[in-house]
Amino acid sequence: ENVVSAPMPGKVLRVLVRVGDRVRVGQGLLVLEAMKMENEIPSPRDGVVKRILVKEGEIDDTGQPLIELG
């Protein structure tokens, strides 16, 4: 899985990584606010952040691509 998608609709509060960062499975990639709760979205695998497809403050839909890993 190279693309991390939104598991729920919500607002992107914080992006915790930058392009080029090495990430490990379970590491937080970004924080979504949904139903007044903050949810940290973890990396599904080890890899390198290739692209960040959303910006802080954006509203996303379920299934929307958020981050691409390489």
Results as ranks from 00 to 15, higher is better:
L53N: 05
G70E: 15
S43G: 02
G47Q: 02
V19D: 04
V19H: 04
V54T: 10
P9E: 06
G47A: 10
D61T: 13
R24I: 12
D21Y: 03
I52R: 01
L32E: 01
L30A: 05
P9L: 08
L32I: 14
G63F: 07
V54I: 11
G26Q: 04
K55N: 11
R24M: 11
V48A: 04
I41P: 02
V48F: 12
L66M: 11
L32M: 13
D60Q: 15
E56S: 09
M35Q: 13
A6C: 11
V31W: 04
I67C: 05
G26I: 04
V31P: 01
P44K: 05
R14G: 07
A34M: 12
V49L: 00
K11S: 05
V4H: 02
E68Y: 10
T62I: 14
N39D: 05
L69M: 07
V49C: 05
E58R: 10
R24G: 08
I59A: 08
L66C: 05
G10S: 05
S43Q: 00
P7I: 07
L16Y: 03
V3E: 06
T62E: 13
E58C: 10
L69E: 01
L29A: 01
I59C: 11
L13I: 13
E1Q: 12
V49E: 03
D61K: 14
I41Q: 03
E68K: 04
V3K: 06
A34E: 06
G57C: 08
A34S: 14
G63C: 10
G28P: 15
D21K: 02
E40T: 15
K36F: 13
K11C: 09
P65H: 08
G57H: 05
K55H: 12
I67S: 02
E58G: 06
M8Y: 15
G20S: 04
M8Q: 09
D21A: 06
A34C: 14
E40C: 14
M35C: 13
V31D: 01
N39R: 14
V15E: 06
A34V: 14
V54C: 14
M35G: 14
R45D: 04
V15I: 15
P7H: 08
D21M: 07
V31N: 02
K11L: 09
T62K: 13
P9S: 09
D61E: 14
I59W: 15
G26N: 06
L29G: 00
A6V: 05
Q64A: 13
D61P: 09
S43C: 09
P65K: 07
L30V: 13
L16A: 03
S43K: 02
Q27C: 07
G57A: 06
G70T: 14
P65M: 08
I41R: 01
I67V: 10
V25G: 07
D61A: 13
V17R: 00
R22C: 14
E40I: 15
V23C: 06
G63P: 04
G20M: 05
V17F: 00
V4S: 03
V48R: 07
E68P: 02
P42E: 08
R14P: 06
Q64D: 13
G47T: 03
T62L: 13
G20R: 03
E1A: 13
M37R: 12
R24F: 12
V4L: 06
V48Y: 13
G63T: 08
E68H: 08
G57N: 07
V19R: 05
R51S: 09
K55C: 12
A6K: 03
E58Q: 12
L16S: 03
G57S: 05
K36I: 06
G63A: 08
V25N: 08
P42I: 13
G20D: 05
G26K: 04
T62N: 07
L69P: 02
L30I: 14
L32N: 00
P42T: 14
V23G: 02
G70N: 11
K36Q: 14
P65L: 07
Q27Y: 01
V54R: 04
M37N: 09
E38D: 07
K36E: 15
I52S: 01
Q64L: 09
R22Q: 12
V25Q: 13
D60P: 15
M37H: 10
G70K: 12
G47V: 02
E40F: 11
G28W: 07
R22E: 11
E40M: 14
L13A: 05
V31I: 13
G57M: 07
T62P: 10
V48M: 09
R24K: 13
K11M: 09
D60S: 15
L29C: 06
P9V: 07
D21T: 06
Q64R: 11
E1D: 13
L29P: 00
M8W: 15
A6D: 02
A6L: 08
E40H: 09
V19Y: 03
R18I: 10
M37T: 12
V23M: 01
A34L: 11
E33A: 07
D21N: 04
R51M: 06
L53M: 12
D60W: 15
V49R: 02
Q64S: 11
P44F: 05
I67F: 08
V23L: 03
V25T: 12
S43A: 11
G63M: 08
K11Q: 06
E33H: 06
V54Y: 04
P42G: 10
E58H: 11
I52P: 01
L66H: 01
V3G: 05
A34Y: 15
N39P: 03
V49G: 01
E68M: 10
D60Y: 15
K50M: 11
V31F: 03
E1S: 13
E56R: 08
E38Y: 08
K36A: 14
E40V: 15
S5C: 15
E1G: 12
V23D: 02
V48Q: 07
G47M: 03
V12L: 07
V19W: 03
V49W: 00
I52W: 00
R14K: 12
E33V: 10
L69W: 04
P44Y: 04
V25I: 12
R45I: 15
A34W: 15
V49S: 00
R14T: 06
N39Y: 15
P44T: 07
R24H: 13
M37A: 11
L69C: 04
